[in-house]
C-alpha cells in the first residue's frame, strides 16, 4: 500500500509542475516587449512620447547634406525666385496632390481662400490670384508653408521640403491657370476647346 502511494504523489507533483510550466506560457510578455514603439510613452521622460523631437539645430541628412537654399528657400537672407529643384510635370502633379491634402482645406482647391475650414470660421486668407501674390516669388510660398504666416501654422513638421517646393510650384501654376489666355494654349488644346464650344452652341 505504502509503496504505491509515493508514485501517485509523484505523478501529482509532475502534473502540477507541467501545468505550471504550460500556464507560464500564458503571460503576455512577448506581446509587451521592452522596446518603445511609435506613439508609446517614453521610458525616459514620463508623460512624453517615445518619438522624441530632435534637438534644435539638428541638420537633416536628406539630399546628402546641407543645402540652405533647398531647406530655407533663402539665399543670403533673400527669398529665392527660382525653384531649386527641376520643374517637371511629375513635380506639378505631386504638388497638386499635396496642395489638395494640406492647403486646400483653407485656401480652397482653386486657391481663392474659400476653403471649407474658412467657411466654418477660420480667418480668410488672401486669394492667391490677387496681384500682390501673383507677383510673389516661389520662395515666398515655400517660406509660408515652412515657417507659417500670421495665424497660419507651419507645415514643415508634416510636409517634407521636396513636397513644399512641389506645392509652391503648383501654386504658381494655379495662378497662371486662372489668368491664362486661350491664345497661350497649345494648338491642339485650343482646337478641342473650340470644338467643345461650338458643340455647346449647337446643343442650345
Amino acid at each position: 500500500m505504502r509503496a504505491k502511494r509515493a508514485p501517485v504523489l509523484l505523478r501529482l507533483a509532475a502534473v502540477v509542475a507541467a501545468g505550471g510550466l504550460l500556464l507560464a506560457g500564458c503571460g503576455r510578455n512577448m506581446a509587451e516587449q521592452p522596446r518603445v514603439e511609435p506613439l508609446q510613452e517614453s521610458s525616459l521622460l514620463p508623460g512624453r512620447s517615445g518619438s522624441l523631437t530632435p534637438p534644435e539645430g539638428t541638420v537633416s541628412r536628406q539630399r546628402g547634406g546641407i543645402d540652405p537654399v533647398f531647406f530655407t528657400g533663402q539665399r543670403d537672407g533673400a527669398l529665392v525666385t527660382e525653384l531649386p529643384v527641376e520643374l517637371t510635370l511629375g513635380l506639378l502633379q505631386r504638388g497638386q496632390e499635396r496642395y489638395d491634402i494640406y492647403c486646400a482645406a483653407c485656401h480652397g482647391y482653386v486657391g481663392d481662400g474659400d476653403g471649407m475650414i474658412v467657411r466654418r470660421g477660420f480667418p480668410r486668407p488672401a486669394s492667391f490670384h490677387e496681384q500682390r501674390l501673383q507677383d510673389a516669388s516661389v520662395g515666398y510660398i515655400f517660406n509660408a508653408a515652412t515657417n507659417g504666416f500670421g495665424r497660419m501654422f507651419a507645415y514643415a513638421d508634416r510636409v517634407p521640403a521636396e513636397d513644399r517646393w512641389a506645392i509652391a510650384a503648383y501654386v504658381k501654376a494655379l495662378q497662371l491657370s486662372q489668368h491664362a489666355h486661350a491664345d497661350d494654349l497649345p494648338a491642339e488644346v485650343r482646337r478641342s476647346l473650340e470644338l467643345e464650344r461650338s458643340a455647346e452652341r449647337a446643343s442650345r
Binding site: I117, F122, F153, R158
Partner: peptide, 20 residues
C-alpha cells in the same frame, strides 16, 4: 512612407483649433 500611420500631435489639431 512608414510602418506607423501616426496619430496627430496637438500641433496638428491647433492648425485649425487655434481659431475654431
Amino acid at each position: 512612407v512608414a510602418a506607423s500611420a501616426n496619430v496627430p500631435s496637438s500641433h496638428v489639431c491647433m492648425t485649425c483649433h487655434s481659431q475654431i
